[in-house]
Every structure is written in structure tokens, then in C-alpha cells.
Amino acid sequence: MLGHWSVIVAFSVVLAFPFYWMLITTFKQTSDLYDITNNPFIFNARPTLEHLRLLFGETLYLRWVGNTALAGALVVFITLLLALPAAYALARLTGNWGQRLGIAIFLTYLVPPTLLFIPLSRVISLLGLQDTIWSVVVVYPSFTIPFSTWLLMGFFKSIPKELEDAAMVDGLTRFGAFVKLVIPISVSGILTVVIFAFTLVTQEFVYALTFIAPEAHQMVGVGVPTFLVRGDVYYWGSLMAACLITSLPIALVYNLFLDRFIAGFTVGAVK
């Protein structure tokens, strides 16, 4: 029992610490932050709102968050729109080739962005999408779709075929059975894909940096370090505030759906 609790406490401290660090740094005066004789874990001077004022007043932080949320939502939508039918077809309709094709698709996910961003930037400029969030909306699905397809394939395979047979005998077409039966049963898998694709959009750096230059169109992951690190000056308080505000909602969603999320990943992993 004691061992059990000590493990829980140890992990909680490890996991909560970055949030605590971001939180106090957000409100610390810069002089407090840089004085190495101070205890770094507590406030040694009065807390300040100066860093938040800088973040919201002198950068386009809110705009970047909005850009990221919009791009994230679009990428999630495109990913689901393409990966759901693809995964179903590969899991059910393509016979022996489905599995091999699924693995082949998954392999494309392993090609690193650092290799791809040069050819893709040509594609983006051909499409005339440079310097807009549409550039990342077009590019991100190229790696969210393969992974999501592979994950959902495992999910669909775990659904007994007889269920769909029953639905078809009961009066649905195969497409109807897919929409009204397979998708509702696979909510955990779909949720996993949603969270995966969305977090990927918020954290991606290479493409967002190379494809978008103007301040107003930045994604949050690029805008924050670009405009809050000026020369060799790090605006730590504002940087931490930006990280805290961006990461809290995602952390909350993760926790809310943790059980389903784990189910999603284990099914995908085993099958």
C-alpha cells in the first residue's frame, strides 16, 4: 500500500512540476527570476502581471492561438473524412492485401518532416498557399492520415463482422452500417485520432516555420518562440505564460478521456 502511494505521489510530482514551474514563472518579476541567490521555487518579490501584458499586448498571441485552433479543427476534419473510410475499406473489403497496404501506409508516416519540407515547400508555392494557414492545413494530413488509418484499422478489425452482417440483414446498406453502427462503436478510436491529430498541429514546428512568415498568420508553436526570443533575450515570463495557456486545455481533454484514449491505443497496438 505504501509502495503504491509513493509511486503515485512521485509520478504526480514529476508530472505536475512543469505546470507549477510555468505558473510561477508567469507571475514572477524578471529581477526575481534572474537572482540566483533566491529560492527558485517560491515568489521572493511581489507577483506581477507584466509578462501577461507583454504577451497579450505586444504580440499577436491570441491570433496565433486562433490560427492554431482553426488549423487543428480543419486537419482533424480532413483526417477523419479520409482515414475513416480508408481504414474501414482496408480492414474489411480488400482481403489479404488490406493488411499489407495498411502497413505500407503506416510506413509513410515514418518519413521525417526534415526530409520532406523542401519538396513540400515547392508544392505549397505551386498551390499559392505560402504564408497562409492553408499551407499547413494541406500538409499536416499527409502524416496524420497514415497514422490514423493504421490506428482505426486495428479498431475496425476488433469489431465482429457478424455485427455488420446483422445490420445489413436488419435493413441497412453497407455504407449505412458503417455510419450508424461501426462509427458509434468506434468512438474511442475516433477520439484517439482527434486528440492525436490536434496535438500534432499544436506542436509541429518545421513546416509551420518554413511555410508561414507573416506575424499575423503564425501558428502558436512558431509565433511564441519567434517573437518572445529577441536576439539573446528570452522573455521567460511571457514564454511560460504562452506555454501554460496553450497546454492546459489539451492536458484537460487528455485527462477527461484518458480511459478511452488508452483503449484506443491498445486496440490499435494489438491488432
Binding site: 457478424e162 455485427l163 452482417d165 446483422a166 445490420a167 435493413g171 458509434p184 462503436i185 468512438v187
Partner: peptide, 20 residues
């Protein structure tokens, strides 16, 4: 005709109840 157009009912070995 597709299964749904045949006006039949089928009970499966696993019963195939819709779990959700």
C-alpha cells in the same frame, strides 16, 4: 437483391447484438 431487400431475419451464432 441485397440482404435488406429480402425481408428475412437472421439470428447469428454470436447473437450480434449492438453493444452500444
Amino acid at each position: 437483391l441485397s440482404p435488406r431487400e429480402r425481408r428475412i431475419a437472421m439470428v447469428f451464432q454470436s447473437y450480434a447484438l449492438y453493444p452500444h
